[in-house]
Design a protein around this nucleic acid. Structure first.
Lengths: 336, 336
DNA sequence: ATTACCTGCTCAACCGATGGAGCGTGATTG
DNA sequence: CAATCACGCTCCATCGGTTGAGCAGGTAAT
């Protein structure tokens, strides 16, 4: 470690290494970034440079490197939250995939706040990102616009936009399937053919719209009509959902829960009910949680296929096209 | 939008704006970074610059900026995973706190892989981070060493190291309290005074060691001796835990679960048991999950106090001291 | 009238990595 | 023996923003 004592305050640069090895900065860079074969640097010199770099604990200065090059290889992502299994998995797998593709992922969490979203995007543009992924963005088109002004391509994930390609889950089909499983369970186990109650989400949210559509279509296919008071979309907060359900003018037998966050409220409600009443209720949720799946009255959960979403995303990124077409990825149904 | 048509491929720079406004790049930069008062730029010129910047959708080039300055205001964090409530919350709240402090957070997820951890740290060093947070690192001292070689201070979070300050949860006390609640429940509800079973984690992991210590001490305080076969630390995997518990030579009545990941295995096991047998078992877990808390036999969960951990972390960062002292943050006990 | 000082701005060097152009040496070719 | 070429390397301008130094023009004080 004595070798690195001298530069404890300053970071090692290619100039330091050049001096140590007794060569030029150009030779050092080209060895370190792999372009040395093209530049006809000898194996011997390359070895000495690599050794010195290793000893000094050298790390390239990305800032300098990116400043000079026209591609940064940095890809940005804005995402609403991490502390949620779905977005956590998205962030994690996006990182892994980007790294595997030789890119540097930078992810920023925007708390579902439209202003913070745009501010975060500007921040990422400052990093000279080559591409920006807007995941679950409240206003993807605004993001696409800001990026376009800087010549940066955008891809929407989870929620679609009209100004950039979008990769989203097939909420319609997922909701259709989940509704069917729930209706089957109610019919077979409870002898009930009533419509289910749809709880959670906002109707200005594309995914909620699609899920409602799947929900209604599954009912229609069985000749069941869904009255408007069976569809409750007060947002995602657990308490709101619980309160709404408690004050229904009728007793639901089957509940379609539109997110695991809402599910918390539903489960709390179930626990407060007398056992007999709870036993006559079945529910299932869109979005998966391992503990949620283990709860007594859970009939099924729909999981979004994160690996496929990320795979499509990376493919789209490689492709580079900016036509605003929507790619839908099927969801996975986890029956009880 | 016509104004920005010309630079749709190239990004706007301070030189472009200088030309538009008819002034020097220096004036532009100082207006945009706030140093213009010191530099005696007139309000009038400042206004014109700001207007032009707005119109052009200008975003600073962080690379160029950081390259020149000695502080980057970028702070890095390596974290094992996002798709877990604890680490997800850490990442999210760290981002928020850093941003509020005028810093740029960059977080990287390392999958508990020691090599990836060091590689990720090197990556972050390339970004010229001013400070690096090693969260839940398998080898914090190695990270501190690599950073020290580049003159970058480190802070350990969640797991302590010996070469940098550490902010961790008070696992000992948390485990002590959880054990007491469990022992009480077993005594009062089941009339049992047997030792609890400790399941999950690895004994080479500092947190597991501390939690085991709290577990044993709570027993000792009641005059209960814990035989070694009551302490099972096969890692965190749900299936391993389930399998070990199934094959115990005795029937446990109380189970101390050392992580929510392990808890999944325990809950699956419980579901496979006949109702009567399941009803004679109580468990609690270290680490909190909202759905876990709602499961039938859960007696209590211990939650790590993420907001306090992050607050202490930011304080340590501001302080800047590199003495390797350990700060412990109390955990929150969630009784049934 | 000279000096001092303030205001409002510009100049130019610099941060570290990169890559096109170019240079000296020795071997090969016509 | 001159011309050509491959080899192994170095020089230098460049990316965009920052900052210490400095300059022109005006006012106030001595």
């Amino acid at each position: 470690m004595t070798a690195s004592d001298g530069n404890s305050s300053k970071r090692t640069t290619i100039y330091d290494i050049a001096e140590i090895v007794g060569t030029s900065p150009t030779a050092v860079t080209s060895v370190l970034n792999g372009s040395w074969k093209k530049r006809r640097i000898s194996q011997k010199l390359a070895d000495r440079v690599l050794k010195a770099a290793e000893e000094q604990g050298y790390a390239v200065n990305i800032q300098a490197s990116v400043l000079r090059k026209d591609k940064s290889n940095i890809v940005g992502m804005v995402i609403p939250k991490y502390d949620n299994r779905f977005f956590g998995a998205i962030a994690e797998q996006f990182e892994e995939a980007a790294r595997a593709a030789g890119l540097f992922p930078v992810i920023t969490c925007t708390q579902r706040d439209p202003d913070l979203e745009v501010a975060a995007v500007r921040g990422l543009l400052s990093y000279q990102v080559d591409c920006l992924v807007a995941c679950g963005a409240t206003n993807p088109d605004r993001i696409a616009e800001v990026c376009a002004a800087n010549g940066v391509p955008t891809i929407n994930l989870d929620l679609p936009g009209s100004r950039a390609p979008s990769i989203i889950s097939d909420s319609l089909m997922g909701a259709f399937n989940l509704t069917n499983v729930l209706l089957d369970a109610c019919a077979q186990e409870l002898g009930q053919a009533e419509p289910l109650v749809f709880i959670g989400g906002r109707l200005d949210d594309h995914n909620t719209q699609e899920r409602r559509r799947g929900f209604v279509e599954a009912h229609s296919a069985r000749g069941i009509d869904v009255p408007p008071e069976y569809i409750l979309t007060p947002g995602y907060a657990p308490d709101k959902a619980r309160h709404l359900l408690e004050n229904l003018p009728f007793t639901p037998h089957g509940i379609f829960v539109n997110s695991t966050i809402t599910l918390e409220g539903v489960v709390r409600l179930m626990q407060s009910l007398p056992d007999a009443e709870a036993a006559s209720i079945r529910y299932g949720s869109f979005d998966y949680d391992p503990f949620g799946a283990l709860l007594p009255q859970t009939v099924a959960m729909v999981e979004q296929d994160v690996p496929s979403l990320i795979a499509k995303l990376m493919a789209q990124m490689r492709d580079g096209a900016q036509t605003p077409q929507v790619t839908k990825v099927p969801c996975i149904l986890h029956p009880r």
